[in-house]
């Protein structure tokens, strides 16, 4: 059974934001919503490191736990998706998510956030696979097409890896062995083991 995971190799990430625009491109994500982002710590100083982050598709997903309308569900691949028809835009998932993944389209009406949007691991939503309705609400369903998330596929330095957790770990382990040093599987404790 595949367990889909993201891994960002901080020693490879160069903050080129290719993952960010690949996502925008693939799903026509509007201005103001960013399903993925790159964060640089110690910016401009020795030790500067960048990491790309989106929804990590946690095993015990906090968003799912706190959602008042229970709109989240986890696929058999371990991908955490949500149903926008149920979402009420309360913002609780944004409070709870360790990674800041949930996004809200900017709306003018007072107090309302609009329906939450987040990374789908390019797996769409509850609508029919690859249907127009699914595309309009969640973007393209690459998993159904048999490909992997575009952000990782297009990563300029192959820092961002996506796919079955075991394979991702193998690829990363190989790199770490070559480099020497301890693995730094960023976010995995929180997302997958915590």
């Amino acid at each position: 059974m595949a367990r889909m995971k993201f891994l960002c190799d901080a020693d490879r990430c160069i903050e080129c934001n290719g993952c960010v625009t690949a996502c925008k491109n693939e799903h026509e994500v509007p201005w103001g919503v960013n399903r993925r982002r790159v964060i640089t710590l110690d910016d401009g100083q020795p030790g500067e490191k960048s990491i790309s982050v989106a929804c990590m598709h946690c095993s015990d997903a906090p968003c799912q736990a706190v959602c008042p309308v229970d709109c989240f569900y986890t696929t058999d691949d371990g991908i955490v998706l949500h149903d926008k028809n149920l979402c009420i835009g309360c913002g609780y998932c944004f409070y709870a998510c360790p990674f800041g993944a949930p996004q809200y389209p900017q709306q003018s009406s007072f107090g309302a956030r609009g329906k939450m949007d987040k990374c789908t691991f390019c797996a769409g939503g509850p609508e029919d696979d690859m249907s127009q309705a699914e595309y309009e609400q969640y973007g393209r369903n690459r998993i159904a097409e048999g490909t992997l998330p575009l952000c990782a596929e297009m990563c300029s330095t192959k820092a961002l890896i996506a796919g079955d957790g075991d394979e991702v770990a193998d690829i990363y382990r190989e790199r770490v062995l070559r480099r020497g040093g301890r693995p730094q599987t960023w976010g995995w404790d929180t997302a997958y083991e915590g």
Binding site: D76, D77, I79, D129, G163, D164, V168
Partner: peptide
């Protein structure tokens, strides 16, 4: 970062 096709084929069952 390829995932085996078989895994994906049976993967999503929404």
């Amino acid at each position: 970062t390829p995932a085996p096709a078989g895994l994906l084929g049976e993967a999503i069952n929404r």
